[in-house]
Design a protein around this nucleic acid. Structure first.
Length: 507
RNA sequence: GCUCGUUUCGGCUAGUGGAAAGCCUCUACUUUCUCAAAGUAAUAACGCCUGGUUCGAUUCCAGCAACGAGUACCA
């Protein structure tokens, strides 16, 4: 009789959601949906110092774009709310008092300065069983002193009282049993009277319990504090319903050492955030996957495979496939270097599966930005011709601008290589040949033009390459007659004439 | 420093007590009027460590090393 699976994604609104955070959210979502469970968004804004306005809205928008949807959360409500920790102050205070009453926690008055001094004085100072006797707290002060200090309204914190020399076991679904001795842990601050807010650890445990979370799937950076969390569950008497833990490996830099950071994206030229973000303070703009021309399906698929695999060779998986196949046990223990090239490959794969109409819709803003207005049907036709060579949506412009605009200049290298002494004359003849064609379909043009080339004894490559140069401006693009059939006879001949009168033969 | 975690081709990774597989990237070839794309092929790895268990270890164990994370009145 296991209870319904409930998992949460619990980011802090301290800035845009990092791509590693997106992956954590995705894995939680996949697990929840596979188990028929609930997925909850909880905003952990207990650090008033680092709060960034707009960050919460960003998180919701980013995950919505990716199709990672929540059953409960700040934006959708739910019966376990409120889902923003700053709205739950009274709740935490109550639980702090419970720990204080049971003797599992104590009040400490040491100021940040005093602690700093202590750290300088004693190497590897840790506020724990071995040192708490020398500090200013409710364990060392008399009841009188304590009372009078509290009466002054002075700031204090509540610390968790950790008993030393006990091996704490954490059973991690990915890593197995992890054991750490409680003497390694310090008496963590659980609550600050200065802002009446709990710290992460207390709020996290209380909320996970109250929200009936069954599985905690989070980043590896939390592994060292997992034993502390186990101890907190025990202190509250919640061991029976303690969630199962899974600590995900981190996303690493594509090159060099260390975890993936915003700087790597700037340095190597790829987005580290799902959506573009403008820093409210500095106005600095960070690029996003959406604005860079990624399809959400590709981002999900790419991220899903960075630290997890289905156990076979399957790589292209829809969200439904992922939900079906995902398993925590198959998450890898080691960190994954971020491979941006592979991400582009995934996007290329997904672009091939999208309809020309949808791609046209995504491409249109870029077209407009380049000063082009075109009929949707025409854009779709062009997209059908070039989509197989496109990796990101903006690539459509590089691959198809000549369908919308006549070349304004001709690539010099190509001119040198492809424009021969007699090219002008030959293309002049070609204009006549094309002019006479009534059925301007690609196939018909090809038949007639190739016949003409053969009859004249011209060199196919010479004619075609010069033809392409005149129409495209450089040496690239799809099948030549597909281009001319698309832009039409008038435009084709006009471009040929422009090229003939513009390009000079260079000996 | 201390604690915990991790270690298979350049990258993501599969897998195994006895022939180490797939994908991305790179390279070559093919198709073609070009560029791409696609197809084919090829290259390439078990921590150049030290011990142990074993007939046999990439696989199990110990040590070492490297890398990562944590070590805040941040999450």
């Amino acid at each position: 009789m296991s209870s319904k699976v409930r998992v949460r994604f619990a980011p802090s609104p301290t800035g845009p959601l990092h791509i590693g955070g997106v992956r954590t959210a995705l894995y939680n979502y996949l697990f929840a949906k596979q188990q028929g469970g609930d997925f909850i968004l909880r905003i952990e804004d207990t650090d008033s110092q680092r709060f960034v306005s707009g960050a919460e809205a960003y998180i919701v928008e980013a995950l919505t774009w990716l199709g990672i949807n929540f059953d409960e959360g700040t934006h959708v409500g739910g019966e376990y709310g409120p889902y923003r920790q700053s709205d739950r102050k009274e709740i935490y205070k109550k639980y702090v008092d419970i720990l204080l009453a049971s003797g599992s926690a104590y009040i400490a008055f040491d100021t940040p300065d005093e602690l700093e001094a202590k750290r300088n004085e004693i190497e590897n100072f840790q506020y724990d069983a071995s040192t708490r006797g020398q500090m200013k707290n409710s364990l060392t002060l008399t009841e009188q002193e304590l009372k009078s200090l509290l009466d002054t309204g002075i700031n204090y914190v509540v610390r968790f009282k950790i008993e030393p020399n006990e091996n704490i076991e954490v059973n991690d679904l990915i890593r197995g049993k992890v054991i750490i001795n409680s003497s390694e842990l310090d008496d963590k601050v659980l609550y600050k009277s200065a802002d009446s807010l709990p710290t992460y650890h207390l709020a996290n445990i209380v909320d996970d319990h109250l929200m009936k979370i069954t599985h905690v799937i989070r980043g590896e950076e939390w592994l060292p504090s997992a034993p502390l969390h186990v101890l907190l569950y025990r202190a509250f008497g919640w061991t029976d319903t303690m969630p199962k833990f899974s600590h995900l490996s981190l996303l690493l830099k594509p090159d060099g050492k260390g975890k993936l950071s915003k700087r790597d994206g700037d340095r190597l030229g790829f987005p580290v955030f799902p959506l573009q973000w403008t820093d409210p303070k500095t106005q600095e703009v960070s690029s996003g996957y959406r604005e860079s021309g990624y399809l959400p399906q590709a981002v999900n698929n790419f991220l899903a495979l960075l630290g997890w695999n289905p156990g076979n060779d399957q790589e292209i998986m829809s969200m439904d496939n992922l939900i079906e196949l995902f398993s925590i046990e198959r998450c890898s223990k080691s960190g994954a270097k971020f491979d941006y090239e592979k991400g582009k490959w995934f996007n290329h794969q997904y672009i091939q599966t999208q309809s020309d109409a949808l791609l046209a819709q995504l491409f249109t803003p870029y077209l407009n930005a380049s000063g082009v207005e075109a009929e949707a049907a025409y854009v779709e036709q062009v997209i059908g011709l070039v989509k197989e060579r496109v990796h990101l949506i903006p690539d459509f412009w590089d691959q198809s601008s000549f369908f919308f605009k006549a070349p304004e200049m001709y690539d010099e290298k190509t001119v040198k290589k492809r424009w021969k002494e007699d090219t002008s004359a030959q293309l002049g003849e070609l204009c006549g040949v094309l002019q006479a064609i009534t059925d301007f379909s690609s196939a018909n043009q090809e038949t007639i033009v190739k016949q003409w080339i053969e009859d004249k004894g011209y060199h196919l490559g010479n004619i075609m390459n010069a033809f392409r140069l005149a129409i495209v401006g450089e040496s690239k693009g799809p099948h030549m007659f597909d281009i001319t059939a698309t832009i039409g006879k008038v435009q084709t001949i006009s471009r040929l004439q422009t090229a003939i009168s513009t390009i000079q033969y260079q000996a």
